[in-house]
Amino acid sequence: MDGVWVQFLGSLLAVVLIVLLTWFLGFRTAAKLDSEAEATAQFQLAPGGFEPASLALDRQGASAIARDAQGRIAVLVPHGTHFVVRLLNEGSAITARDGVLQIAGIESLQLDLGESAERWQTPGN
């Protein structure tokens, strides 16, 4: 029984040390989009398919928003060093303020689009 505990505690210690090492080595950079082509490729992975008809990149490459031919809107939400595609519900409120888009339901996401932000704002917001 002691051996089992030693093995478990040793493994736990190894887990903590490796995570700390990963952090100290700098593997904590945020996800970044380099181009519209890269963003398009990411949008195309959306469950059910999504082909961007128009697209806007965050000015720092931290996210992107796109609309397809059916008028559906999707965003790329950063997750670690990668992105996750999220299709917005129909009628989701999108507000633009000082060039920054805020999306209801994804409060952690802010898209800095500059002058083009207003084009993505939903009516009434």
């Binding site: 190894a14 887990v15 490796i18 995570v19 990963t22 952090w23 080595l25 700098g26 593997f27 904590r28 950079t29 670690g80 060093t81 990668h82």
Partner: peptide
């Protein structure tokens, strides 16, 4: 630089 991400690694190792 994108091979690892410290929180992802933590989750992987904790699951292990």
């Amino acid at each position: 630089g994108h091979a690892y991400e410290w929180r992802d690694t933590g989750t992987s190792l904790a699951i292990g």
